[in-house]
Design a protein around this nucleic acid. Structure first.
Lengths: 205, 205
DNA sequence: GTCTATAAAGAGATAGAC
DNA sequence: GTCTATCTCTTTATAGAC
């Protein structure tokens, strides 16, 4: 055990490699990413990268596994005891903040899913599905209590994911349409999404 | 001129190749697609494919160019003279119908844009941006007339794109969460999106 | 127009010195 | 732990027969 122990230096090097790998995988997809590119981004030689992660695939799996929980945190935090509209507002804000602060992670997952999720299908029908079912039940309860307009809770979650992640996954398109230097796009997005989702969901009368 | 004329047979073969290429590019991205895979899907040899399209890139460009207009049609059809809520309802339905009938086309663009749009950036800041500006002006006019709640028209369009294309681009995730055999997902999506967008946008009082 | 064979480059992974 | 050199397989593209 002493031999396989992870020293601080080893952990630091692994982190440096994974950060470089996140850069490259998120920008080019699994197949489009090259070990040359990752090694260059990490500032080391290709064989040295492979000393830490035996294969390209292993590196990719390490990234996806390590980031999945981070990715689900905002939904996890949806509080069944909270006020429905305010909980959804906070959730939308957390998701949009994630799109802004973690665009590479978002694109990593987007690349993977658009191409049929060959490497994370189990996570989607496992951990993700369970969490969605749990939170959909919460939202369904709010609707049953008349505290929210009747909508399909799961499709509501899809809509929140889609609209918020759009600002990371489709960033180049957003910039092309708005003009490259629109630094206010996240604020404008936030205001628009709150109008759409919250005014649409607040019970009428 | 007679020599480079495109015979019906040539056109048919090109169409067969492009259909195969759409299959493969949309499923694996540009880099992930191989000529072997495209040739196999088209039922011909690899050199024969290259007889019609000199390079892999040329094939990709032919696809993107040919599909862009189709892709923009639903927005093009937004009628300035129509009733705002009904126009938006019809637009959302057209986009959702496109996601259902043309998932490969949607994923082709998604792959391209997520990876930074290296091959279609000009289209995004050209044709797409112009159309968006034109239609955003229409929507802005409706808002100025008090016929629609005040939202940023461009971000409203982003939200409609994101939510509808989600059902083609992230189809495997949608299926994983809903259960593989949920054939009603497009109907449920339609109902949910109409509640969100239209109730959210109908002026109150 | 279509094919088989092959050249040439790219990219994942290994050998072995330091 | 890190590197240079190299092996091997994949993949794009070409040559040339039919």
């Amino acid at each position: 055990m002493a031999q396989t122990e992870r020293t601080p230096k080893r952990a630091a090097t692994e982190a440096r490699i994974l950060d470089a790998a996140l850069d490259v995988f998120s920008a080019h997809g699994f197949r489009g990413a090259t070990l040359d590119g990752i090694a260059y981004a990490a500032g080391m030689s290709k064989p040295n990268v492979l000393y830490y992660f035996a294969t390209k695939e292993e590196m990719h799996v390490a990234l996806l596994d390590g980031l999945m929980e981070t990715w689900l945190d905002p939904l996890e935090a949806l509080d069944p005891a909270g006020e429905p509209i305010e909980e959804l507002r906070a959730y939308i804000r957390r998701k949009l903040a994630m799109a802004r602060s973690h665009p590479r992670e978002s694109r990593l997952f987007a690349n993977e899913i658009v191409q049929g999720a060959p490497r994370i299908a189990p996570l989607l029908s496992g951990r993700l599905r369970m969490l969605v079912e749990e939170k959909a039940t919460v939202i369904g309860g709010w609707i049953a209590d008349g505290r929210l307009s009747p909508v399909d809770p799961v499709h509501l979650l899809f809509a929140i994911w889609a609209t918020t992640q759009h600002y990371s996954d489709f960033d180049v398109q957003v910039r092309a349409v708005l003009g490259k230097d629109d630094d206010a796009r996240f604020d404008a997005a936030s205001a628009t999404l709150e109008t759409l989702f919250l005014d649409g969901l607040r019970p009428r009368d």
